[in-house]
């Protein structure tokens, strides 16, 4: 071929939305530590309109030491916000599951806030595909 074409990448390198701002607002600018939170999402979304999401945070969930909030953002949707979960010692465990919309292949990020102000996070990439093939 003579001309090299200026094709946009099929998956524009994670067009940044407001995910950084939302995380900053949640953490007060502190950088969360990787760990303690475990996000569970499928590798490939069966249906971008309803992607199962689950998370759990390691914590004794006592009055002295518990998770207060968990922020979920998606960095490739038009808007990053997904949900914020609120826990107390009465929750017993810091675990929840819901179903979310993902417009394209992107990272989903969970940030957990503890009652002592410490912050933890996890990230999972979910592939959203056009589909159609078959053996």
């Amino acid at each position: 071929a003579v001309a090299v074409l200026a094709f946009g990448s099929a998956r524009p390198a994670f067009a940044k939305n407001d995910s950084d701002d939302l995380i900053k607002a949640f953490t007060g600018g502190k950088t969360p530590t990787k760990g303690k939170v475990r996000l569970d999402l499928p590798d490939i979304a069966e249906n971008g309109n309803t992607v199962p999401l689950a998370f759990s945070v390691e914590s004794p969930m006592t009055d002295a030491s518990h998770v207060t909030d968990v922020l979920i953002v998606a960095d490739g949707n038009p808007r990053a916000g997904v949900a914020t979960f609120h826990f107390s010692p009465r929750s017993g465990v810091a675990e929840a599951a819901t179903r979310i919309r993902l417009a394209e292949t992107q990272n989903v990020i969970a940030v957990a806030k503890m009652n002592d102000g410490s912050l933890f996070m996890d990230t999972r990439q979910v592939k959203v595909t056009i589909g159609g093939c078959g053996g």
């Binding site: 916000g81 914020t84 107390s88 009465r90 929750s91 599951a97």
Partner: peptide, 28 residues
């Protein structure tokens, strides 16, 4: 549970239609 909040969530438009919530609480 008995008037005490054991779990709550703020939802954004990225939560799917017919929102699904799964969580636990400690029985007191």
């Amino acid at each position: 549970v008995n008037g005490k909040v054991v779990f709550a969530c703020d939802l954004e438009p990225a939560v799917s239609a017919n929102p699904y919530m799964q969580f636990k609480f400690r029985a007191e």
